[in-house]
Design a binder for these strands. Structure first.
Lengths: 386, 386
DNA sequence: ATGAAAGCGCTAACAC
DNA sequence: GTGTTAGCGCTTTCAT
């Protein structure tokens, strides 16, 4: 006589409710009589099994040395057998160590994109504090257009002798010697945003720029049955050291590469920031490209183009990056068709978490943590802003 | 004499490297002399400040009663002043309580979508175990097509007397009495997947179905300059109790609602599962709809349509849900244009985490946790599969 | 090289 | 009502 049979045929609310009440007063069948708790093994247990003290087990676990071969062997064998899982909570409580982190990113005050990264770091920090983990975080902000300021900050970061570093290595060549030094002094670091393979970072967190460009190409040409005449536009960027922008461009072009070459025309433009002399003339020239069907802006400065389109009441496909306030406006108005979300906030948050987990729990993060390429349109934007 | 000035003008790698070495042997400027550690306040400190014992403070913190008004007042005032943040890690270590959870979801063995949910739960569980938190989880799987089996499982869940419940309330009417009982017995529960407002759950985790339908409409018609002749297709679903499918449908239609009524034609179809009699005839009829430009499948069974399209070498816009293996194939081949990702894995994972945080840390989750409506296409799919 | 013991901050049982 | 105290599992220091 199971609940099932009882319920069959009871198809209206009244009767169902009655059933519930029925069960409330009925004796409760104990469905959990056999709980089979595996009772987690503690260091103490291992010590007992090996006939040594807790201290010795701990020394073996952490390779702190000062253990005789025989003792070490005994412990290690047991460890292998039982698949010991340390209680991480007890671990952090026990070791009252404080860790120093250094964060090297562009100044969040000067760029909304990096503002979001900064917020992500703050978020991760307060999360950790909640759990009783206190990291002393040192912020080194550089000017993303001045290589020397980047270099200065890497130096400062290094000299603060941190236990770990989170860095956005926007300057390729200026980064390499820093990474080399970090490697030598065995300071773990996580890189976000810009992927530098040779860095041999503990972890890279960001997106696949090539694929990102390819995705932009798919979106810009989706449903386009006529000619493919598109432009890729870099705004206020020095391409010589920005590998990830070059990658985006490559990806974008690769999408059109294979077939229908005769009908595809992809052009690259590079223009200064809107407050720079020459901007107006150059954006004018770009927008006046004959038969231009769409533009792909390689950074979050997409709104710059949207603004010009609006001013001219011009409608072409426009694809760009990131959920900045300025971009959202134009996305809603229809001047931007799609944004690809790079999620700087989550990148940074995860970066800090990775470092914390590594330092506190010896948990090794994935070498490559590629974020999803999130497509944002007018109708899912709100679901992203939660 | 800052690092900055030293570096200016040093524009090639050699010299940069030299700089680093230079600094390595130079005396290290201590940038962290004033660390200003706020030294987190402990219960012990509060006890001292209030001139009471730790026990009393604890009783006040947790409303355990047995505290004189005067003592309680003193403690409360101090608490308010200093903005006490308990050390959550110490908390879990200290209270060695074990919590019982009950999970009520469709059988993961019979549906790949729910398989992913199940995996999310497992993931959350193992994460928690890692941290020394052991939840005893009770799985109650029901048949998503049989209301009675759902009812049976809710009863079982209730009788296991859990500390919290995670439930996918697929059956609207059958859910209500259960929620009522849960409310009466003050058992907190989190609902995933299907939103039932009246449930008054601790938290709902899922997507905005209406908006999801609207997004599908945007995607299905994007770049379509000609007629809008689209169909919405429910496969193997009993709409009478599936509010969220009805919502999707409403959202989809609402997108076309306002303007250009004369050129838009939106039809609704409902067909049985592919292994049911009548399927072939009915899908045939759907695909033979004159001038059909696209189909929107309301569930993860999108591949069913894609398969039929492939068989007929037919290409129309196809939008559907979720990253099932079957769907991915057709997305890559181009028979599916976009998938909207509902992320069942993350929904479930977060559900368990919410319950755990609530029970262990008294952390109240958001009443409404609406997930982003993730758009998946051929070119970002890999970034989602990581 | 090894073991004993004192914490880490909080909980909960137990005297008074 | 209130204070004291013994844990929770691990780290770390200090004798030995």
């Amino acid at each position: 006589m199971s609940a099932h049979t009882l319920c069959v045929g009871a198809h209206n609310r009244k009767i169902q409710t009655y059933h519930y009440l029925n069960f409330l007063i009925a004796p409760l069948p104990d469905l959990h009589s056999i709980l089979m708790e595996p009772k987690n093994i503690r260091i103490k247990d291992i010590a007992e099994m090996a006939g040594v003290s807790e201290g010795t087990v701990d020394r073996v676990l952490h390779n702190r040395g000062k253990v005789s071969k025989s003792a070490s062997d005994k412990v290690k064998r047991i460890l292998a057998e039982i698949n010991y899982k340390p209680n991480l909570i007890a671990r952090t409580l026990g070791s009252n160590r404080n860790y120093q982190l250094a964060i090297v990113i562009p100044n969040p005050e000067r760029d909304p994109y990096w503002k979001q990264s900064f917020e992500g770091i703050k978020q991760a920090e307060s999360e950790l504090v909640q759990f009783g983990i206190t990291l002393a975080i040192d912020y080194l902000f550089f000017d993303q257009h001045v290589k020397e300021s980047f270099q200065e900050m890497t130096l400062k970061a290094f000299h603060s002798k941190p236990d770990g570093i989170l860095i956005a290595p926007l300057f390729y060549y200026a980064s390499m010697p820093f990474f080399k030094v970090l490697k030598e002094s065995r300071i773990p670091f996580v890189q976000i945003n810009t992927f530098i393979k040779e860095a041999e970072a503990l972890s890279f967190i960001g997106q696949d720029s090539f694929q990102s460009g390819k995705l932009a190409a798919e979106l810009i040409s989706f449903g386009h049955t006529n000619d493919h005449n598109f432009g890729i536009l870099h705004i206020d960027e020095d391409l010589t050291h920005s590998i990830h922008l070059i990658e985006k461009e490559r990806g974008f072009k690769s999408f059109f590469g294979s077939d229908n070459k005769e009908r595809d025309q992809i052009q690259t433009f590079s223009i200064p920031a809107p407050d720079q002399p020459g901007f107006q003339k150059q954006i004018e020239a770009v927008l006046n490209t004959p038969n231009l069907n769409g533009l792909y802006v390689s950074t979050s400065k997409t709104y710059v183009v949207a603004r010009e389109l609006e001013r001219r009441r011009l409608k072409i496909r426009l694809i760009g990056y990131d959920l900045l306030e300025e971009n959202l406006d134009f996305l809603r108005k229809g001047y931007i068709d799609f944004l690809i979300h790079q999620n700087p906030r989550r990148q940074a948050k995860l970066g800090v978490r990775s470092l914390a987990n590594y330092l506190l729990f010896e948990k090794i993060p994935p070498t490559l943590n590629l974020f999803p390429l999130e497509i944002i349109s007018r109708n899912n934007i709100d679901s992203y802003l939660n």
